[in-house]
Design a protein around this nucleic acid. Structure first.
Lengths: 340, 340
DNA sequence: CTGAAAGCGCTTACAG
DNA sequence: CTGAAAGCGCTTACAG
């Protein structure tokens, strides 16, 4: 590998001058600069990034921890982050927490010891303790949370208004005439699962409908989402034959439920209307197609990186920085599963 | 940030000894070692990886270039790679080429200048020149290609036998009685698109069926796959009403085609049987569900990393290393779109 | 405009 | 068993 020293020797000048010439320092004569640049490109010189990192104390690399990768929404987020990062000259190390708090903790530690310039994270469902996140902040490493966040942690965040979105979804079911509306919710912990439930409940009450907790079914929303949808649909058919609409926490669970309903001869939307959440590509191609809330994954990724980038820049200059909480718009995509 | 120097000063010993104690060198007294370890953990010492990289000339980081991320097959590969890498203490930088040769070239260069310990790549559809890959090899950076590979490049590879898989798919159509079988193929360049076409053709000929090139339709298989499927289905219905089976290069295109057929009242599988390729999760939940070739993404990722890891180890020890080409098994998943 | 020198924080061959 | 010293390849404050 070619080093500055070799270029310097080749030209009989000092390493200092070579370094400066390559970095556009103004105090190098044009002639020298040209010579250095030519020699560098001739020898195919590439700065040793290990040395640069050590000197500059930054690696132009950020870390991303995400609960699952094989997931339409999250892979869209990843795409947004990587593309934006590349534009600004940053690379992205990706880690998957598998919805495990323990793993997430280890991975945060790993990224910290790798000295990434910043960390982007969407929390695992099981994460209830936030010490590892506060460690990041104490360590002065910029941190931005997105989608699955912890309200308590003091950092920038990019989210959607889950409560508003699920209110909209439930309102739509009410508008098309549903009277008895069930909810398949996510796990008890993550904020967005809670918020979606609250939006559902509020929509019912605001419209003078009774809130019946026995109509709320819980899903873990892990690898078994599709099966959970089926199972809950079975249970629901046994326990509450009068239900005519369901707002479901996630498209994949919704698709599982629809599969089960159709198998049992329950017609969608004639007998039961269904609204999902996320707008996976799949939702548009199944039959009947699924009404759902569009969750802007790409935008979330892009904005999460942008916030992180700003913080990195500010911190570098030691200038003031205040956290931002960005709330992205969602919209209801009406399809066949709720036609009236 | 705590450094070795600070620990050394704290204990009144040399940096050398501290370093050795922390790294389990045998020539340090038990007492000293214990003292050093205690102090290190008390001060929450974390080695500065920038300095370690510079000294050891390795970063324990590898690069991954992939055509698209938001894609069931590729995101499964990513998952396999990351998990395996983490087990061996490696982190993964992910870049998306967007099926662009130009971007891919830049990204290879970027990874090389970042001095990653190895590179994993699945080629963009447009990649026909392999200089950038040979640069990697010349640079002595271990390289493993997977899925979309270049036969010409001398490195380890993980692939499936596309020809065999598509032969199997076509044979299945023939076995259930199809006489006039079309093929929606991928772009002209990538090897797997070529191989899938050849497997289709061979199956026809081996079974005494005529090969008719006008029954072969091309898709770019980019972001527009679903629409391409629809369009090709339209064309096919106009041009070849007698077709009773189609083998389609990719599930997403197949699902687009199915959507169009159903819209036009063509029954699947009664009028036309369809086989896809990849076994996206979606294939199992649409209706009729799609017969397809299961492409083992996770296994491919795991094996690709394992091969890369072996090569990294060998190169470090300067021992001999020979390239391996791993061919993973695929199987035909028979579903409703081809019932007879 | 040029360059000698210090230093980033480690690792390791070598001397004692 | 311990440590002084060299060196990885850069960057940059400082002197001239």
């Amino acid at each position: 590998m070619v080093t500055l020293k070799q270029i310097a020797e080749e030209l009989g000048i000092s390493i200092t001058t070579v370094s400066k010439a390559l970095k556009e320092y103004p105090d190098v004569s044009k002639k020298t600069r040209k010579l250095v640049r030519e020699t560098a490109s001739m020898l195919n010189y590439k700065p040793n990034s290990f040395a640069v990192n050590l000197r500059t104390r930054e690696s132009k690399t950020i870390g991303l921890i995400i609960p699952v990768i094989v997931h339409h929404f999250f892979s869209s987020v990843i795409k947004g982050i990587i593309e934006q990062a590349e534009k600004k000259g940053y690379l992205v190390i990706i880690l998957q927490s598998n919805e495990s708090y323990e793993l997430e903790k280890k991975q945060v530690d790993l990224l910290l010891s790798k000295r990434v310039d910043g960390i982007l994270i969407s929390l695992a469902n099981g994460t209830a303790d936030f010490k590892h996140l506060n460690d990041v902040i104490e360590n002065e490493t910029p941190l931005v949370m997105f989608d699955k966040i912890a309200k308590m942690v003091k950092c920038s965040k990019v989210i959607i208004d889950d409560r508003k979105a699920s209110y909209k979804a439930t309102q739509h079911l009410i508008d098309i005439g549903c009277k008895r509306i069930a909810h398949f919710r996510g796990p008890l912990l993550p904020q967005n699962s809670i918020d979606r439930f609250l939006g559902y409940k509020k929509a019912l009450l605001d419209n003078g409908l009774e809130y019946d907790s026995s109509l709320v079914y819980i899903c873990e929303c892990g690898d078994m989402s599709f099966e959970e949808g089926k199972l809950n649909a079975q249970k629901l058919l046994k326990e509450h034959k009068d239900v005519d609409g369901i707002f479901i926490n996630t498209d994949l669970v919704a698709i599982g439920a629809m599969t089960e309903f159709m198998k049992q001869g329950v017609r969608i939307p004639e007998d039961i209307s269904i609204v999902g959440f996320s707008n996976w590509f799949m939702a548009s191609v199944i039959s009947p197609s699924l009404t759902t809330i569009n969750q802007p994954g790409l935008e979330m990724g892009i904005n999460a990186f942008k916030l992180l980038y700003k913080e990195i820049k500010k911190k570098k200059k030691n200038s003031d920085f205040s956290f931002k909480e960005l709330v992205l718009d969602t919209d209801l995509v009406i399809r066949e599963s709720t036609k009236n």
